[in-house]
Amino acid sequence: MAKSFRDVLKSDKFVITSEIGPPKGTNLDSMLHHIDILKDTVDAINVTDHQSSVMRFPSLGGCLYIKEKGAEPIMQMTCRDRNQMALQSDLLFAYARGVRNVLCLTGDSIVVGDHKDAADVFEMDSSQLLRTVRQMEAGRDLGGNELDGGVEFCAGAIVTPEADPLEPQLIKFEKKVEAGAEFIQTQAIYDLENFAKFMEYARQFDVKVLAGIVLLVSARMAKFMTENVPGIFVPQSLIDELAAAPKGQALSKGIEIAGRMIATLKDEGICDGVHIMAIGKEEVVPDILAAAGINGRH
């Protein structure tokens, strides 16, 4: 059995998480394969919740398979699709089935996804969801009613260290910490100097910060992300480095870059760990860790 994620966070270990995206449909082969690859490699596995507002197999479903395989899931929970009743109810079910970690997210907009006409909920935001978890742990639901059998979660949230303007994001970050976030997984970061500055600030707070590492697979992807994805900045030097890779070697270069960043973050003690998002290339997560000089969870 994997060590509980909270225990890993409390240890001095450099924490490593990664994530899987459930399928659109009931063919779980690829998801289960990804769980098998990651389960002995990372400390916990996030399962995305209809990422980018694309309807998929549920996060909670993916978490149960991770539990079955003896690994530690982090249930991503967005406020986009469920009102306070449904969110609380899913927390009860998740807890009852052994899911002990939840990442509280506001969620992407419906209109960026594949059900553009659907109703969005957003009755709560991420900080309100975190407080809901803590209130349920104290034995009461949001209606103030006593729970017959409680819950206990290691709860986390996210932050975007490259946001523009940054200060409103930091105010929200502090609200999340106040609401009881124990860990923070960041949006993808590539500029380690900027990130170190963010960490100088974040170190004031009692929360573990895992830097978001999104695998770059080509110069084109890197350029697209820096130009189009809010809160992501890829330095030109990295784009050039990927562009200079020999034909067919861009992925290896991306793995090398991710590994190098992780090694720097770890060796210089910049943050408490990393969250690796390989976005469909989960097979290479062990290679990224090997490139970082880290060989598996154990």
Binding site: F122, D125, A163, P168, Q169, P230
Partner: peptide, 16 residues
């Protein structure tokens, strides 16, 4: 706010 958030911006905001 598109998501009618009450406690600050989401991570999707970009340059205002």
């Amino acid at each position: 706010c598109h998501k009618h958030l009450l406690n600050g911006p989401c991570g999707g905001t970009d340059s205002g």
